[in-house]
Simulated assay, not measured.
Amino acid sequence: MTSCEVGNDPFLITADQVGKLSKETRVSQLGEIYKQDSIVNRRFDSTYIFGGNEIEIYETSGNQLLRLDPKTPGDTASRIGDIRILDPAFKTEKGLSTRSTYKEILENYTIKKIENTITDAVIFLEEIPAYITIDKKHLPTIFQLSTTHKIESSLIPDNAPIDQFWIGWE
């Protein structure tokens, strides 16, 4: 597989693509896809952390582009499962990036659900397999102190910045 099979824009995010990667990309293909960049494979094996690994992609300039989680840790034949978008150059067709605000999400996407975690509101989108976090420090105090209260879309300020932007392929 070559990057041109996925698409011409090396920073476009769609339901089936994140830049040079597609839903079908295997860990073993990363070296060829990112041959001009640096790939760092971090493995976790300890009593306190479930075994697994993360793969980090860096430009030659040192700028981190993506963090990848294989579906099957340690298996080079595995497909990519989750991708954390780190570089703001990555954007959806509607312009959503790591520099976007909640208002931009609302104006361009349908929210499937919002989960209340310890530190974040996790927003799942309908049109693309994305989940986006917004730090709860941007929410009313009642949500900052609890995970039991349901976060309604209307209670998230328009100017709340995206904290993390993930694509999750099944």
Rank of each mutant, 00 (worst) to 15 (best):
R99W: 01
E32A: 14
R43E: 12
G7R: 03
S61E: 11
K91V: 12
E32P: 00
L125M: 04
N116W: 00
Y109N: 11
T76L: 11
K136G: 11
I114N: 05
F90P: 14
N8A: 14
G19V: 00
I85G: 14
G74P: 07
Q36E: 07
Y34H: 12
I57V: 15
F11Y: 15
T60L: 09
T101C: 08
A121S: 14
E56G: 00
I132C: 13
F90Y: 15
K35R: 15
G81Y: 14
F11S: 09
L21N: 13
I156M: 10
E152V: 03
L86H: 05
E5I: 04
T72F: 12
A121C: 08
I128Y: 08
K112W: 05
T147N: 10
K150Y: 10
N108V: 06
Q144D: 01
S146Y: 03
L68M: 12
K112V: 06
D45P: 05
F50Y: 01
S100T: 08
L106Y: 11
W166G: 08
S97M: 05
I111M: 01
L96S: 09
T101Q: 15
D75K: 12
I156Y: 07
P140I: 09
I111W: 02
L125G: 07
Y48T: 09
P129G: 02
G7M: 01
V27M: 14
D75H: 06
L66R: 06
D75C: 05
D9Y: 02
I111H: 03
S153A: 15
I167T: 06
K71N: 06
S46W: 04
L68W: 11
A89Y: 01
T2I: 05
E115T: 05
I111G: 04
P88Y: 09
L145D: 09
I33K: 11
I162S: 01
D9W: 00
Y48M: 01
S78Y: 09
I162E: 04
T92K: 15
N108W: 07
T98S: 15
T92D: 15
D135H: 08
Y131V: 02
P88E: 13
C4Q: 14
S153R: 15
V27C: 13
R84A: 13
L145V: 02
N116H: 00
S61Q: 09
Q17W: 03
N53I: 01
H138R: 11
I156Q: 10
P10S: 07
T25G: 15
K94S: 12
I128N: 09
I123H: 06
W169L: 02
E170V: 05
I33Y: 04
V122Q: 06
P88I: 05
N116E: 00
I55R: 09
I128A: 09
S78M: 09
E32V: 08
F90N: 11
E24H: 09
E59K: 08
A121R: 05
N8Y: 04
R42A: 03
T14M: 03
E24K: 14
F11V: 03
N53D: 13
F50C: 02
S153P: 14
E93R: 10
G95E: 08
S153C: 09
